[in-house]
Design a protein around this nucleic acid. Sequence first.
DNA 1: AATACTATTAGCCACATTGCTAACCAAATG
DNA 2: CATTTGGTTAGCAATGTGGCTAATAGTATT
Lengths: 117, 117
Amino acid sequence: MTNHLDSFFGAMSDPTRRAVIERLAGGPAPVSELHAPHDIALPTFLRHLKVLEAAGLVRSEKKGRVRTVHLEAAPLAEAEGWLQRQRQLWDGRLDRLDALVREMEAGTEGGSANDHT
Amino acid sequence: MTNHLDSFFGAMSDPTRRAVIERLAGGPAPVSELHAPHDIALPTFLRHLKVLEAAGLVRSEKKGRVRTVHLEAAPLAEAEGWLQRQRQLWDGRLDRLDALVREMEAGTEGGSANDHT
DNA sequence: AATACTATTAGCCACATTGCTAACCAAATG
DNA sequence: CATTTGGTTAGCAATGTGGCTAATAGTATT
């Protein structure tokens, strides 16, 4: 199936690439401008952009000799959703455990309690 | 500064590791149980767990000969927040652009409009 | 005490990633 | 039309990642 999340998280795991995303959240920009603040060779930087584009995080169009890059928000939302689901599941579980513990402490009269699974 | 997000996203970029997280969202589990559904050698799997632990995503305690692993929700929340901020920034920008376009279409009477920056 | 089970360490290989330089193409610009 | 500018391609080196097997350690279990 080769999940989207795979290439997405891979793309986000690099500080240079995250910095590009942060910059692009403020609006589209040409390659040269995106490259400027980073102290790496342009070809190297270009490959970072390609990784981002392959992950569907950005798109770019070339007009004349300038390529303009812009953010694609949908993948961010997707990953955000995934994280949220996992976290909420876990948080919810903790809440339920907590309730169980309180219930058990309240009275040992004979409550049938099922916790995990 | 060696951001948390670095190791976090790195850890999440592997399907095996994400599957472990998904499993752990349902509750803690011993190493062997976590390993079972994955068709890779145990030592290999163990290293995945180490990556997750190094990224602060899980913790584990060993009792007897069994190591029990559990999810740590805080990092998920942190990454979730980061993504949300970037996305909202971008979405907000789109909204503002949209508004601008509508404003410009409404009347070309002589409105002074500032968009980006 | 011997055996079986759970986890761990060590070491190896193949491939991916990230960095570089050098050379090059195509579109402005003088 | 020569030059500069913005981006791209090709190729190399160093390091990281993910997989394996073999061997070991430390509990249970019988």
